[in-house]
């Protein structure tokens, strides 16, 4: 795999999910950063240029759907960044909100790592 120069941000409150995704994409040569909460993700997005952000829909037990907040933030600050939303439970309403905000892809959890990588390739229009 030749994924040089792809800068990826992973946003998830589950450290085991972050560790697995980080290991997989780093092995593919992707430059990977991780964030565990909304504000950390926002600070990273302001300070870096990401090609892709993969964000879990829920980053805490609060009622706020923080994954959509990450998406909304990216669309305000970095229009060229692709956003993939990961989620275990997706209602039609949330899906429509994410589409309206400009999500590039939706992936139901759990998903095999190669499928997530294929989705990244698809939204970027190039192989990892």
């Amino acid at each position: 795999m030749g994924g040089m120069n792809i800068h990826l941000l992973l946003v998830d409150d589950d450290p085991t999910v972050l560790a697995a995704l980080h290991k997989y994409f780093a092995a593919a040569g992707v430059d990977v950063d991780c964030a565990r909460e909304l504000e950390e993700a926002e600070a990273m997005i302001v300070s870096n240029n990401y090609d892709v952000v993969i964000a879990d829909l829920r980053l805490s037990w609060s009622s706020v759907i923080e994954g959509l907040e990450v998406l909304r933030f990216i669309r305000r600050h970095s229009r060229q960044t692709h956003v993939i939303i990961l989620s275990a439970h997706v209602s039609q309403d949330i899906r429509e909100s994410a589409d309206a905000l400009g999500a590039d892809a939706f992936i139901p959890k759990p998903a095999p790592l190669p499928y997530i990588a294929e989705t990244v390739s698809r939204v970027l229009g190039r192989a990892l």
């Binding site: 950063d33 991780c34 964030a35 504000e39 926002e42 600070a43 990273m44 302001v46 300070s47």
Partner: peptide
């Protein structure tokens, strides 16, 4: 951590 970079540290602190 991400906050080892001062710009990330203070952006994060502002947002929190």
């Amino acid at each position: 951590s991400n906050a080892e970079k001062p710009d990330v540290l203070f952006e994060y602190v502002r947002r929190k």
